[in-house]
Design a protein around this nucleic acid. Structure first.
Length: 814
RNA sequence: GCCGGGAUGGCGGAACUGGUUUACGCGCGGGUUUCAAAAACCCGUGGGCGAAAGCCCAUGAGGGUUCGAGUCCCUCUCCCGGCACCA
């Protein structure tokens, strides 16, 4: 027997497992069911974080458990290697983004290896490798050809000091996160993916996400934001222009007293001219232009300027004044709204601010709202009034009735609007996949021919910020011949959002060396969809939505046979420290590697997995002692080590009670692992280990139970598990290729149980009974109980509830 | 404001389809070992009353259903997460 010493056994097993090729996914093997265990691939930031350690510990347990249950497992890893931090490092420290990124990958890779993750390293790739982004570009071209990638003028967050576009996340309270300068709006022509074409399918197919956390499903639904209502056409009295509005409340059409356009609405300039208000309207537009995008959406101002023209309400022919106001957004609906102050709070506030009339057209049942005394809009259900033919009609039926009527009259139609907007993918940045488009004066936007891909990212660029993509300052990159006519043309100098890279990486794992396509459809058909996806909830919306979108597009292209990539998903919680999220600036960053070096990877894994439900946040400060104190999980593994060695060397037979507990434990742990209840699984293993200890201390044997513990530890503490399995228990091959232990349901059932005796629902006695005790036996025993009888004195037993063999409740009266 | 999820010992957390509340671990108290242990091992540990046997009270608060509620229903409080001028 030896001492438990993770620092020596762990590196030894890492080497052994690699030499044995244990975790290679087998593309050829059709005899075992496949299992695709996917962990969200990390951004290579340098050090491995505690959050990575937790996520990968969980994902690894899932994969190893699947192996042991006889699956052919694909458990890959790669790197989401493009992105801003690399470029910032280049600007700050003069390191080339490529160098910085590859060094980080190497560091994180060696940490993950040291932790013994069961990745199939032969499939590793990174998204900044031309062999990968070649296919990212290829997919862009396919989307472009299908009309799903297009360019349009759109407002962006712009930092005037750094002369760059900022992502929304880089704008903190309207200021640039780097230099603190107030961010303004700037209109730029940018690339978009037309994800809105898929809004309804993305919403409908949520049904296929059989095992996603509720909150993530809800977030996806809300993000898509389907809203039903009606499109109604108004006419501008002075010009004859037709303007459509979207409303969820067509039953309030008779209450319209004004009409509002978003400043960006295409008709605004013309209407202002017609109304003689161009100067005022332009002033408002300019003011808005100077406001950061993020601030504008948060402002709740009810300012607005009259356009000097009138809109004709199609339901009653009334002319109402038109305005331009910032509270109406061009991005939602049609960019114009009808103003119904009595029944919409924003419209109410706007009307009050501008002295516009309020007209009540929906009354709450049995009440009468008076516009004179109303202090807020009434936006609930009610009875229609002052609405011509619809007086007396009640909502919600009234909405359908009015919509039908609008259709009949040719004045409108049922309409659906989504909150989801098209995906802006242009980044005026260097460290990303170049957008494979060539701009030709004659032929416009021309896709780079497939054979010319990848459009390589040049190494020698000037990373300093300066108003445009660094690629734009690289003449060798920009100047190119038009693929169509051969005349001089210019490459697009923007790069793609890194979410594009991560929207299809899980396909690439299926055939990472494929050179003629992003993936081999046959390989994808073999491995996908993913059987279990594990990752952080911070990707609950964007990454998952985009990946779902890409999968549907690939499905429509005939490249994959399914429409949802991840039917089952699991989110681990965050690892925090001292109640706050870890960060370098707070100085509370704790990485797993010092802990791994000192106490072992197994101890880190168990500490994280035992801390609580996998999806809950973990406060490292609460669950782990300082580095120089022995952590409980290292101590426990030491006890397991000792117990299993002793049991292995003990000849004596194992007591039946222990065998029964062993079967119960196998049953329980199996179920717990299926449901990611790692903390509960570990506690059951502790109970079994405690029982083994007692048996050994009592001079009895425990070999079978020890063997089962070693196996069940396989997914959770893989190093010690294999050490014990091979060295102590004498097996020739790895515990990780052994078959998951099975249990005998007969033996898993307890033979003696505690019968609880209650009187009027209060526990008065506990009796040991045979598990097979029937109702009559239990009743008899209970009624005979001295402790129970003391409470029956002077009372009449009115009822006896018997639930054999666990409980008897004697109910009395009087 | 809207949507989603929570609240169980000193702490992290268990409790299957309503049936022994507090598994497992930490911490704490006591002990063994030791020159001394922050190390290891053993015992104890929800609160109150009590010498003890034992009794009473406890799953955020209040009601309800039930023989029986942490679990189901209603009302409320607080906490966490998401969205937020979405027409």
């Amino acid at each position: 027997m030896r001492r438990y010493d993770p620092a020596t056994i762990e590196p030894r097993w890492v080497a052994a497992w690699e030499a044995e090729g244990l975790y290679r996914a087998d593309d050829e093997d059709g005899s075992r069911p496949k299992f695709y265990a996917l962990d969200m691939f990390p951004y290579p930031s340098g050090d491995l974080h505690m959050g990575h350690a937790e996520a990968f510990s969980g994902g690894d347990a899932v994969a190893r458990f699947a192996w042991m249950r006889g699956h052919n497992v694909l458990h890959p890893i790669g790197w989401d290697a493009f992105g801003l931090p690399a470029e910032n490092a280049a600007i700050k420290r003069g390191v080339h983004p490529k160098e910085w990124t590859y060094a980080n990958i190497e560091q994180q890779r060696s940490s993950l290896r040291r932790m013994g993750m069961s990745f199939d390293w032969s499939r590793q790739f990174n998204t900044c490798d031309p062999e990968y982004y070649r296919w990212t570009q290829w997919l862009f071209v396919k989307l472009f050809q299908r009309g799903l990638a297009y360019r349009k003028l759109a407002p962006a967050n712009w930092c005037p000091k750094d002369q760059t576009v900022l992502a929304n996340e880089q704008v903190i309270n309207g200021h640039c996160e780097r230099c603190g300068t107030a961010v303004i709006r700037k209109d730029l022509t940018q690339w978009f993916f037309k994800i809105t074409d898929y809004a309804q399918r993305l919403l409908d197919d949520v049904e296929e996400l059989v095992d996603w956390p509720d909150r993530v499903i809800t977030m996806q639904r809300n993000w898509i934001g389907r809203s039903e209502g009606a499109g109604v056409e108004f006419e501008i009295a002075e010009t004859g222009d037709k303007v459509e509005v979207f409303t969820t409340r067509p039953d309030t059409l008779w209450g319209v007293t004004f009409f509002v356009f978003a400043v960006e609405h295409p008709l605004v300039t013309k209407l202002a001219e017609a109304g003689g208000t161009s100067a005022e309207v332009k002033a408002m537009a300019d003011a808005l232009q100077a406001t950061p995008l993020t601030n504008r959406e948060q402002a709740e101002s009810r300012e607005g300027v009259p356009l000097g023209v009138h809109a004709v309400n199609p339901v009653n022919g009334e002319k109402v004044p038109c305005f331009v106001a910032p509270y109406v957004l061009m991005e939602y609906g049609t960019g114009a709204v009808m103003g119904v102050p009595a029944h919409d709070q924003r419209d109410f506030e706007f009307a009050k601010a501008h002295g516009l009339p309020v007209r009540v057209v929906v009354q709450p049942e049995g009440e009468a709202r008076d516009p004179e005394t109303m202090t807020e809009a009434y936006d609930h259900e009610g009875v229609m009034v002052n609405s011509g033919p619809f007086d007396g009609v009640r909502s919600p039926e009234s909405i359908a009735a009015v919509t039908r009527w609008l259709e009949e009259q040719g004045k409108g139609r049922a309409a659906v609007t989504y909150r989801l907007r098209d995906w802006l993918i242009s980044r005026q940045r260097y460290w990303g996949a170049p957008i494979p488009i060539i701009h030709c004066d004659e032929h416009g936007e021309v896709a780079v021919p497939e054979g010319d891909l990848p459009v390589l990212l040049p190494d020698d660029v000037d990373f300093r910020l300066g108003g445009e993509s660094p690629l734009a300052r690289h003449p060798g990159f920009v100047n190119v011949a038009c693929p169509t006519c051969g005349k001089p043309a210019r490459r697009d100098t923007d790069t793609m959002d890194t979410f594009v890279d991560s929207s299809w990486y899980f396909f690439r794992y299926c055939s990472p060396y494929e050179t003629s396509a992003p993936f081999d459809p046959a390989d994808v058909a073999r491995w996908m969809p993913v059987d279990q996806y594990t990752g952080g909830v911070e990707h609950a919306i964007l990454h998952l939505l985009y990946s779902r979108f890409f999968t549907k597009v690939l499905h429509d292209m005939g490249m994959v046979g399914f429409t949802e990539p991840f039917p089952r998903m699991m989110n681990q919680g965050q690892v925090i420290f001292g109640g706050a999220s870890m960060s370098k600036s707070k100085g509370n960053l704790v990485g797993p590697m010092p802990f791994v070096e000192r106490w072992g990877s197994d101890a880190v894994r168990l500490t994280l997995l035992f801390a609580g439900p996998f999806e809950d946040d973990i406060d490292w400060q609460l669950i782990a002692p300082p580095l120089d104190r022995r952590p409980p999980m290292n101590a426990w593994l030491g006890r397991v080590h000792t117990a299993v060695w002793e049991a292995a060397e003990r000849e004596a037979a194992q007591p039946e009670e222990l065998t029964r507990l062993m079967h119960r434990t196998i049953e329980g742990v199996t179920e717990d692992l299926e449901r990611f209840r790692f903390n509960v699984a570990i506690s059951k293993l502790q109970v079994l280990t405690n029982a083994i200890r007692s048996a050994l201390d009592g001079g009895e044997g425990a070999r079978d139970a020890a063997s089962a513990v070693a196996q069940m530890l396989g997914p959770l503490a893989p190093f010690l598990a294999d050490e014990l399995w091979r060295e102590a228990l004498g097996n020739q091959t790895s515990v990780h290729v052994s078959s998951w232990p099975s249990f005998d349901p007969e033996l898993a059932r307890q033979e003696r149980v505690t019968l609880v005796v209650q009187v009027d629902g209060k526990v008065r006695d506990r009796l040991g009974v045979d598990a097979s005790a029937d109702e009559a036996t239990c009743r008899e025993l209970a009624l005979a109980s001295e402790n129970a009888r003391r409470f029956l004195d002077g009372r009449r037993v009115s009822q006896v509830i018997v639930r054999p063999p666990r409980l008897v409740n004697i109910v009395t009266s009087g």
